[in-house]
């Protein structure tokens, strides 16, 4: 106090802001180095994995047959044929899952955001979290226990789709929910002020506003389920030929093709198919991810 009075013109800086001590500086530097390292540690396996899949997979996928032919009539050690049957199977099974999971998921999200009240809403929200943590093998076992053991169905691509519904639902619900939360309340209130009932407001105002975000969530859900292997191991047999009928017969999918070739075919042609299949699967998943992020750019509401 007295110093300030004695020399009022002297700036307060030297006393007020003492320089940061060496130990604090070192700690700060060490923390910066460590967190940067953590990020690099994550990047190394990613780059390494992508490069090895690319290097080993590209020779397989560059042939036109890879995308247009099945492995029907191709012997295991022959470098011929393609994975068209597996790509078709993967897409068909995901589509079946989507047919059920998308409408149910969106409606459940509407319930949680717009109507949810009381105990049922709490339980539902809790169960969505639990469902998102259910391992894919458990979902597959459940479908197996219910449809094959008890109801006596045969293995089929359709049952795989049903198992994928369980894995897709929580992703669709959480993403849609987040988007519905972002729709401004003013929009709802404006509709109510015009005398529009709540359900029409939701269908005509709220859902269209949240549409692009919802589609993004659906695309991400597709990307997630297409790589699932556990359900196809339990619920369907592998076929080397094209089968478009999900209700009957064996049906290939990319994960099942990779697993089958890996466990039964040690030849060079098998190795080529394994890595080609892995690369194809990554490409397809990536396409859905990219579609998702492109659509979210056009979102009419932003976070």
């Amino acid at each position: 106090m007295s110093t300030a009075l004695d020399a009022p013109d002297r700036p307060a800086v030297p006393e007020t802001f003492r320089s940061v001590s060496a130990s604090r500086k070192i700690k700060n530097q060490a923390a910066t180095v460590l967190v940067t390292l953590a990020f690099l540690i994550a990047v190394i396996p990613l780059v390494w994995l992508l490069v090895s899949v690319l290097v080993k997979g590209i020779p397989a996928i560059v042939s036109a047959d890879w995308w247009t032919k099945s492995l029907s009539g191709v012997t295991p050690d022959e470098v011929r044929g393609g994975v068209y049957h597996a790509i078709a199977g993967t897409l068909i099974q995901a589509l079946i899952a989507g047919i059920f999971a998308v409408p149910i998921g969106i409606l459940a999200a509407v319930y949680l955001v717009e109507y949810g009240r009381g105990r049922l809403a709490k339980i539902t929200s809790f169960m969505v979290d639990i469902l998102s943590g259910v391992p894919s093998i458990v979902a597959a076992l459940f479908i197996f226990a219910l449809f094959i053991s008890i109801l006596g169905f045969d293995q089929s691509g359709f049952l795989v789709g049903l198992a994928l519904v369980l894995l897709m639902l929580p992703v669709v619900i959480r993403n849609t929910q987040e988007m519905l939360q972002l729709v401004p309340d003013e929009l709802r209130e404006a509709a109510y002020a015009l005398g529009i009932p709540k359900w029409k407001t939701i269908l005509r105002i709220v859902l269209p506003t949240a549409l692009s975000g919802t589609v993004t969530g659906v695309m991400l859900a597709f990307a997630r389920v297409m790589g699932e292997t556990a359900p196809v191991l339990v619920l369907v047999g592998y076929a080397r030929a094209i089968n478009f009928n999900p209700f009957q017969g064996n049906m290939a999918s990319l994960p099942l093709l990779i697993y089958t070739e890996l466990s039964t075919n040690p030849s060079a042609a098998g190795q080529l198919r394994i890595w080609g299949g892995a690369l194809t699967l990554i490409i397809i998943v990536m396409i859905f991810q990219i579609i998702a992020s492109v659509i979210s750019r056009f979102s009419s509401i932003s976070k």
Binding site: I106, V110, T124, L131
Partner: peptide, 11 residues
């Protein structure tokens, strides 16, 4: 919508 929520609980 409540039915869709119930589906999740039931699952």
């Amino acid at each position: 919508t409540s039915g869709a929520g119930l589906v999740v609980v039931a699952a």
